[in-house]
Design a protein around this nucleic acid. Structure first.
Lengths: 190, 190
DNA sequence: CCGCTACAATTTGGCCCCGAACGATCAATT
DNA sequence: AATTGATCGTTCGGGGCCAAATTGTAGCGG
C-alpha cells in the first residue's frame, strides 16, 4: 500500500518542488483519495461479484439504472449512469447481445429509444444485487454507519459543487479564450 | 443534478424490487457517491486545467508521480499512479512523443526502464500544479478543512480495507471454484 | 557453461470512454 | 407543403484500461 503511505510524505516533496508556493494540503489529499478509493472499489467489485457474470462496473450500473427506474429513454439512462450517450450506445449493444436488455422505439416520438430489462436481466439483478450490496458493506467495513453517512454527504456536496458551478468556473478560467480542442476524438470537418 | 436527488429515492425502489430483503443503505450510498464524485472531479479537471495542455487525468498523474519522486522505475510509477504496467506503457509512449518525459535503461539491470521528466516536462508541472491545486480547492470549496481531512481519512480507510483484505475476500467468495475468465482481454492459449 | 526459475517491460485483445460530426425526426413556422 | 432549428441516438477517432501472453534479462544451482 505504498500509494497511501506516500500521500502525506508527498506534500513535503511538492513544497520542495514549488519552492515556497503554498499548497492546499487538505483539499489535495481529499481529491487524491476520492480517486484512489473509486479505483480500488471498482477493481474489487469487478474482480469479485461482477466477474462471475462477466460484467464491467459500467455495464452493471446501466443494468441497475434500468432495473430501478424501469423502461427508460437512453438519454436518461446515460445521465443516471454517469456516462455519455455515445458510451451508452456501445454498452447497451453489448448487453442486448447477451440478452439482458431489450430496446424499443418510442410509440409517439421516433427519435427516442427505450431500454428495458429482459426476464433474464431481471433475474440476474435480483440475484446479483444482494451480492453487490454485501461487497459494499465489505469495503465500508472499517467505517461506522454514521461515518458512511457523513462521508457520503461530503462527497455529495463535492458533486453538487462541480455540477452547479463547474461550467461557470471553466468559462471564467478561459477568460474569453477559445475552448482549446482535444487532441483525441473526431476532428472538426473544417 | 437528477443523479444525486435520486440516490436516496432509489433506495426505496430497491426495497420494492427486492421485496423485503434488507439493504445496507449507508454503505450503498457511500460507494455510489465515491464513484460519482470521482467521475465528476476527473471530468472537471480534464475540461479545465488539463484541457489547455491536452492532458488526460491519467497522463497528468503519471507526470505528477515522476515529478515528485524523480527518475523512477516504471513498475513503481504504475503502482503510485494506480494503473497497470500495460497501461503505463501506452501512456508513457504518448508522453515521450510529446517531449515531456524521457526513458533510459537501468545501468546495471537490463530489465528495468527508468522514466524522468524532460526540462519541458519539468517546466509544465511547475506551471500546471498550482492551477491543478486551485481546482482541488474549488471542488472542495463546500467543505471545511476539517471536513476534507475526515473525508480523506475515511476514504483512506476504505482503500486500506480493500488492499489488505480484498484478495482474501475474493478468494473466500469463490470458495474453491475456478476464478472464472474474463470475456474481454487476451484469450488463454489453451 | 547450461538449464531453470524469477521477474522486468511490452504486446495483444476486447472493452470502456468522451465529444464532435452525423443522419433522422419533431415542432413550429410560413 | 416547405423551411428551419432543436433534439434524439448513433458513428467515429483517439485514448485509456486490464490481465494474459510474450519477450528478454538476471541470477541461481548444478
Amino acid at each position: 500500500m505504498p500509494g497511501q503511505r506516500s500521500i502525506t510524505e508527498a506534500e513535503k516533496l511538492v513544497q520542495a518542488r514549488l519552492g515556497g508556493v503554498p499548497v492546499q494540503h487538505d483539499q489535495m489529499a481529499m481529491v487524491a483519495n476520492i480517486y484512489r478509493a473509486a479505483s480500488a472499489v471498482r477493481q474489487h467489485f469487478e474482480n469479485s461479484v461482477l466477474r462471475g457474470s462477466d460484467l464491467t462496473w459500467t455495464a452493471f450500473v446501466v443494468l441497475w439504472v434500468i432495473w430501478i427506474w424501469g423502461e427508460s429513454e437512453t438519454r436518461h439512462v446515460a445521465e443516471e449512469a454517469g456516462i455519455s450517450k455515445g458510451t451508452l450506445t456501445g454498452v447497451s449493444r453489448t448487453l442486448q447481445s447477451r440478452g439482458l436488455i431489450s430496446r424499443a422505439g418510442h410509440p409517439s416520438d421516433g427519435r427516442l429509444v427505450l431500454l428495458s430489462l429482459t426476464e433474464e436481466g431481471e433475474a440476474l439483478m435480483r440475484r446479483l444485487f444482494p451480492e453487490f450490496n454485501a461487497e459494499e458493506a465489505f469495503v465500508a467495513a472499517p467505517l461506522s454507519a454514521e461515518e458512511c453517512r457523513s462521508t457520503a454527504d461530503a462527497l455529495r456536496r463535492v458533486v453538487v459543487q462541480v455540477e452547479t458551478h463547474g461550467e461557470e468556473r471553466r468559462r471564467s478560467l478561459l477568460a474569453g479564450a477559445e475552448p482549446a480542442p482535444r487532441r483525441s476524438g473526431r476532428r472538426p470537418k473544417a
